[in-house]
Write a protein that binds this DNA or RNA. Sequence first.
DNA 1: GTCTATAAGTCGATAGAC
DNA 2: GTCTATCGACTTATAGAC
Lengths: 191, 191
Amino acid sequence: MSKLSRKEEIKNCAARLFRKKGFAATSVRDIAKEMGMEAPSLYNHISSKQEILDELLLEIGEAFVEGMDQIRTAPISSIQKLERLVGLHVSLTIEHTDAISLIPSEYVHLEGKAEQQYFKLREQYEKELRKIFRACIKEKAINEVNVDLAMFSMLSSLRWLYSWYSKNKKINSIALEQEMIKNLIDGIRVN
Amino acid sequence: MSKLSRKEEIKNCAARLFRKKGFAATSVRDIAKEMGMEAPSLYNHISSKQEILDELLLEIGEAFVEGMDQIRTAPISSIQKLERLVGLHVSLTIEHTDAISLIPSEYVHLEGKAEQQYFKLREQYEKELRKIFRACIKEKAINEVNVDLAMFSMLSSLRWLYSWYSKNKKINSIALEQEMIKNLIDGIRVN
DNA sequence: GTCTATAAGTCGATAGAC
DNA sequence: GTCTATCGACTTATAGAC
């Protein structure tokens, strides 16, 4: 683990607070207190509170798109891609638990250019995921489901995995991936 | 549809705004503006901004617990209870889309007594759901999954259904229920 | 039941000393 | 790079006229 810059420390600290109370309800003074300094001192490292949220969400968004790109170009079947995608969510959840937690709710506080970039990343990700789902159906690997609904349903579970993981950190990354593949792709009903 | 009291109008209005910007980022002035009145006038109908959130979340929480109670005491198999539970989420999502949207993220802004009541309702609901899952396993209707993880995974999808539904309102309630049962219980993989 | 005026506090951010 | 002091805007909520 490389030494964190002061700015990275602040961002990690802020991510933890944003997760707990939300971006809007977390003050710059709260972040400073958690860092053990006075609020104005933060501004030697950041330019605004908004910048912290922007960078946290864009970095995690880029990580998802990069992961998706590797999966997209891998020489494997579509259903294997879908399984690897579950693994991507599990890995990023374990590595960036606090930042991941901001995705479902705090993106609404993005503004201007950062907001545009974020939505672009999200669209890109969802577009590729939709392609994988359609290919799975074409290859008769998954049933003829309503693609958007099934995709949204799967993403919802994966986006909230951080919540379960925070209370169950002892689980092995690979075991968690396997269990989620069973839950989300195979289903739970005995057949 | 019965005529709404002024307070109910305000709560519906606030729910829509809380959903869009979050509770903390929505000001009393925002709510007043949406209602076509000045901010202080709201206080003839409500006692505080906090009260609005408290009531919105407690009412929807009570609706879930009541629905769960009917399912719990119904003379049906455990797996049928699980399926009816999906239906309960679908129904409440369609009837109270905005209020439902507050559950995943805005509960963190509850305080004091309302916070306690809300957590009590949530625990009650999750406890009953856990029982249903365990009974399903015992009856060999679902596989021997990690109960908490499978339960959380299912709930995450159901809690975020409002988001998909908002963009796809034309779907039939029963069709949506059937599709979600397939996604969440049967799985999507061809077998 | 709605308004204007305003209290009392918090917000993000800056100026400038050290 | 950290601090104290502070600005100006915004916050929830109340007082009191109509």
